[in-house]
């Protein structure tokens, strides 16, 4: 059953193989520099989702679902939510919810600055990316069966 070629043609597969990693890296850049330049967790999470979606569209769902499935993505989403809540609860060290608890906030305009904001960006991007990927994977898995035949 796996003998027949799945997915799109060879040209699309080659192009997807070359570009998926670059798109993933761009998403990570957008997330990690979200506090010094435009971007942030929301945009970066969706870009990471698009890298996986490109792999699914090019190689077919049977190939891709062996690597990562909807349940794995769902657990990653829960991990992102718990991480965000943990960062929020850690603010109680200094007194209140969502406190920016780093005393030394680092040098401004560099990567390691701004306290909890990069950590929150990572948590948000995990949540958004994994959640939307789970939605897309489930929508791809649904097979259309025409209801007219059943009456």
């Amino acid at each position: 059953m796996n003998k027949e070629p799945k997915g799109m043609t060879l040209i699309v597969k080659t192009a997807a193989r070359l570009t998926a990693g670059v798109i993933l890296m761009y998403g990570i850049y957008i997330i990690s520099h979200g506090h010094v330049s435009p971007g942030g967790g929301f945009a970066g999470g969706v870009i990471i989702t698009l890298a996986f979606v490109l792999v699914i569209l090019a190689f077919g769902k049977e190939f891709s679902m062996r690597k990562v499935s909807a349940s794995i993505a769902s657990s990653f989403e829960s991990f992102g939510a718990i991480m965000f809540l943990a960062i929020a609860l850690a603010g109680f060290l200094g007194g209140y919810f969502f406190l920016n608890f780093f005393i030394n906030k680092g040098v401004p305009f560099t990567l390691f600055s701004a306290g909890i904001i990069p950590l929150c960006n990572i948590a948000i991007s995990l949540k958004v990316g994994a959640g939307l990927f789970a939605v897309f994977a489930v929508l791809v898995m649904l097979k259309f069966t025409n209801g007219k035949d059943k009456g």
Binding site: V46, G131, L132, V135, F136, V138, L139, L142, F144, T145, N146, G147, K148, D149
Partner: peptide
């Protein structure tokens, strides 16, 4: 985007049931 995905999922279920 999430709301759109939810509505599309419900619409696909309706299509599967009613054709």
């Amino acid at each position: 985007l999430a709301i759109t995905a939810l509505v599309v999922g419900i619409a696909m279920r309706i299509y599967e049931r009613y054709g």
